[in-house]
Every structure is written in C-alpha cells, then in structure tokens.
Design a protein around this nucleic acid. Structure first.
Length: 147
DNA sequence: TGCGGAAACG
DNA sequence: CGTTTCCGCA
C-alpha cells in the first residue's frame, strides 16, 4: 500500500499545471493532515486520461460521469485507502452518502452513472483559477462556467 | 443494480 | 465526521 500511496504523499502536482495541489486534500482550517475523500479521488481519476476506460465524463450532461469498470475503481480506491477488501458495493454506499450532502446524485436509469453537483460543491471549495482547470475536463463545459 | 438503516471504526 | 462493513429490501 505504501507504494500505492506514494503519489498521494508527494502531492498533486501531476497533470498539467495547477490541477489538484496539496491543500485540496486538507481542511481549510485544520493544520494537520487529512485523509483523501472519495469525491476527491473520483475527480482525480476523472482528470487523468489513463483512467478513461475505467471512469469517464458522460458526454452531454454537465458533471455527469460513468463508472465503466466498477471493480477496478473499487480496487483503486481500496488501494489508496489501504482497504484491500473494498468493492463496488461498499464504494457505492459511500457515494450514496453524498446524496444528502448534495455532493452527488444518481442519474436514474443510467447504469453506474452519477452526477456531481458542481454548483453546490466545487464553487465553494475551489478558487477560480483551480476551478477552470477542473471544468476543462468536462466535455459539456463550454469553457465559460456561468457564475 | 440500487437504496438506505444500522453499527463500527479511526 | 467520512467512510467501511453488512444487510434486508425492491
């Protein structure tokens, strides 16, 4: 697991420029380290081309993504959190807890498809310069996130 | 497949 | 608090 967590420890300076810096994984006020959150991790996978066959943005719907390989996403998540027994059943339960928090909601009828509530979540958690690089990843984002 | 209660954990 | 684990239900 240490090997699997190495890129987490070195911080988020991979990908073009300013994608996800270290502070994105920490609470605003608490100085101590904080474990990565699932939606951070999902965003992280979504952002990297090498995981497009595993998870990807859904064309057309803004903020919507499809988990193409649930077992693999669960395996990756389990490795990151040092939880070898992780599976999609458990991971999806964690995703369901996001419904009430308005971080995510399910796209009904579409298999393994969820949607981020960008307006509620991202805009308050990310500064504008960081938000832009994030939204560029979404195919439905026409370049201008209208306030 | 997807949901949400319940208990447990760090 | 944010999951992880387990489960009954639809």
């Amino acid at each position: 697991c240490l090997a699997g967590c190495s890129h987490f420890l070195q911080g988020g300076q991979w990908a073009r420029g300013l994608a996800f810096p270290d502070w994105a994984y920490k609470a605003e006020s608490s100085p101590g380290s904080r474990q990565i959150q699932l939606w951070h991790f999902i965003l992280e996978l979504l952002q990297k081309e090498e995981f497009r066959h595993v998870i990807a943005w859904q064309q057309g719907e803004y903020g919507e993504f499809v988990i193409k390989d649930p077992d693999e996403v669960a395996r990756l998540w389990g490795r990151r959190k040092c939880k070898p027994q992780m599976n999609y059943d458990k991971l999806s339960r964690a995703l369901r807890y996001y419904y009430n928090k308005r971080i995510l909601h399910k796209t009904k009828g579409k298999r393994f498809t969820y949607k981020f509530n960008f307006s509620k979540l991202i805009f308050v958690n990310y500064p504008l310069w960081d938000l832009r690089s994030l939204l560029l990843q979404s195919p439905a984002a026409g370049g201008t996130p209208s306030s």
